[in-house]
């Protein structure tokens, strides 16, 4: 239907890289999203907060194309991709991680990252090994190092500890050098050291990379994000800088107050 304008409409600097308009999602009788509007500027670091069931992950799924919205539109880089299947979105520079880490359990760490690279470079149907392949393998190993999995690059993803699988997922997303990086609770289940490393990694990303972050760890969220959107019951209830949001009484009542705020 609406995937019309695939002509690369390179937006002028001010146009939002992700534009969500009146997005509604109904699961049977349950309205998971009740008309969300969201503009994310290129290079912005946006945290989405909200209690469980607020619709944060559903919003992610709509932006990443894993589910189609019941109503409303999603545009990425000015291209309407409301009905564009998820497999086409990486071409728009979108990479994501999942709330529950989704890795390929039977494959090694290096192979997982290699697949992310192969998918990104559209080399996944090559039935032989080539020089390009060897370069991608070397690159995968470097990415594994960068997410502190260098020592585990030959380990099957299914054998990794929870925190390591999160790191691996992050590595798979980073490997594709995304323009829009969507992270669904990347810090959950990480040790303090791993969390610090995560923040360092995200802070080191090039400025042009847009980061959308769902995070329960306020410390991580507020350190990374320049802007915070708070959701509850499928709606946006507050938005602003971390300080503004921290001071918002509604947010306090709904979220921060109940969770202690740190």
């Amino acid at each position: 239907m609406a995937e019309a304008d695939t002509t690369d409409a390179e937006p002028d600097g001010a146009a939002p890289i992700v534009q969500v308009r009146s997005v509604r999602v109904a699961f049977g009788g349950l309205l998971a999203l009740r008309g969300i509007d969201l503009d994310v500027a290129r290079g912005e670091r946006l945290a989405i907060l909200g209690p469980n069931g607020a619709g944060k992950t559903t919003l992610f799924n709509v932006i990443a194309g894993d589910i189609a919205p019941t109503g409303g539109t999603v545009a990425i880089k000015g291209v309407d991709c409301t009905r564009l299947p998820s497999r086409r979105r990486p071409r728009l520079g979108v990479a994501r991680t999942y709330q529950k880490a989704r890795t390929f359990e039977g494959l090694s760490v290096a192979d997982n990252i290699y697949l992310a690279l192969a998918g990104h470079r559209r080399r996944h149907r090559v039935p032989w090994r080539s020089a390009v392949d060897r370069r991608m393998r070397a690159e995968a190993e470097r990415v594994a190092e960068s997410v502190r999995l260098g020592d585990h690059r030959g380990t099957a993803a299914g054998a990794l500890a929870h925190g390591q699988r999160r790191q691996l997922e992050l590595g798979m997303a980073l490997a594709t050098e995304p323009e829009v990086l969507m992270l669904d609770e990347p810090a959950s289940g990480l040790s303090r050291g791993e969390r610090e490393h995560l923040v360092t990694l995200l802070e080191a990303l090039p400025e042009a990379v847009t980061v959308l972050l769902i995070e329960h760890d306020m410390d991580v969220a507020f350190r990374i994000a320049g802007r915070v959107v708070v959701m509850a019951d499928g709606e946006t209830i507050a938005a602003g800088t971390p300080d503004q949001v921290r001071g918002d009484p509604r947010v306090h009542e709904i979220y921060l107050g109940s969770e202690g705020g740190t």
């Binding site: 989704r102 890795t103 390929f104 559209r122």
Partner: peptide
Amino acid sequence: QGVRDDPVRMASLG
């Protein structure tokens, strides 16, 4: 093998 382990993830990788 990636398709075997997690087809949804494979789609999101393109």
